[in-house]
Simulated scan of single mutants.
Amino acid sequence: MRYSEQVKPVSYLKAHAADVLRGLAESGAPLVITQNGEARGVLQDVASYEATQKKLALLKLLALGNRDIDAGKLTPAREAIARLRAGKANAAEA
């Protein structure tokens, strides 16, 4: 997708808000809003926004994991699995 094809001035947004929102929901593509010829904001539908937030959260978890690896904070897989199984057993007893 080319963002250059998804650029509209703020005056277009004001005059066609309902159509813009409908288009966002249908295409899932973000829309760049300009003011005085300069990009000022980006609109996207809620589903795409939520998907983006989930992806960012996953990337953050991966980055934190990589930081732990770099710092030597490692646990052997067998030990981690044993702890998880023990936790499930304790949860089932509660």
Rank of each mutant, 00 (worst) to 15 (best):
Y12D: 07
A86D: 14
A29N: 10
E5S: 10
E38T: 09
A77P: 06
A29V: 08
Q6N: 13
K73Q: 11
R85D: 11
V32I: 15
A29K: 13
A80H: 08
S48Q: 03
D45P: 01
E26I: 09
A77V: 15
K73R: 14
L62K: 10
Q35C: 08
L21P: 00
G37D: 03
R78Y: 07
A77T: 15
S11I: 10
L31N: 04
K88C: 07
A80Y: 05
D70C: 06
A47G: 00
R40V: 14
R78L: 12
L74V: 15
E79A: 12
A82K: 11
N90R: 15
R85E: 14
L43Q: 02
G23P: 04
Y49C: 06
L24Y: 01
G23T: 03
R2T: 12
G23H: 02
P30D: 02
D68M: 10
D68V: 01
A86N: 12
R40W: 04
L21C: 12
T75E: 15
V42Q: 05
K73F: 07
L62V: 11
V7L: 02
L21K: 09
Y3S: 09
L62D: 05
Y49R: 06
L24M: 01
L74D: 08
L64C: 08
A94F: 07
L24Q: 03
L61D: 08
D19F: 04
R85W: 06
K14M: 14
S11H: 09
